[in-house]
Amino acid sequence: MEAVNAVKAPALEVHDLTVAFDRKPVLWNIDLEIPQGKLVGIIGPNGAGKSTLIKSIMGLLPLSSGYCKLFDESIDKVRHRISYVPQRESVDWDFPVSVLDVVMMGRYGKLGLLKRPRQADIDVAMDCLKKVGMESFANRQIAQLSGGQQQRTFLARALAQQADIYFMDEPFAGVDAATEKAIISLLRTMTANNKTVIVVHHDLQSVSTYFDWVILLNTRLVAYGPTERIFTQEKLQETYGGKLTLLSDVGDLIRRENFPNRE
């Protein structure tokens, strides 16, 4: 495994993390540290445990062993600094709420018990909708949205939290190319403001242009670190080893020398 010099004041630390379903390990002995203000991609084949990794960091799944720290605190102390964009399929889009209702949920954590959202919260929510280009859909019922619009609604909800670290599970699934570009530039402005964004991603083509850092995962951690150092032919083969169809994808990529170093 690629050793990385100790990261100073990491946003995220994972130590000896193992997660198993029915005694079959899905993640095996993961150790990593991610600095603040980076756009990080989690890359690996299907079933590599990419979603499981972010879910277990957030404490949504029981850990078999190990622990995680965010901003040097246990997760429950810093929940208000964490935001999450779940996979689009995880909710019922026929639920009778509007786009604005969903984005307002991003404010609930800040409000606390017994407090109702105020005009200031609505302003934040509308501002976030504007950032994802959805302000004209605010009063639309969520069942009437396209896949890409649903994804942008979730993104606006996460933004409305004004968190410090964002976990996103396949935010580009079912999103058209123009939206994907818009989302990426939005994520870039976030990381420029020292927000940490961790994205589960499966499109190898775009990895080197999108992410500052990558985590290569296939049940165990293959490597993690700055993209230009880690996203190499050798490491990718190690990650996707045995998956022939994907290997040929990787081969194509390498042939086109599609890995320019980031300046």
């Binding site: 935001s83 909710v91 949920m105």
Partner: peptide, 18 residues
Amino acid sequence: KELLLTSFDPGYATAIGF
């Protein structure tokens, strides 16, 4: 708001501390 949030999206609700 708590009942609405946890009914609509329990995964997200748990992640942000409900």
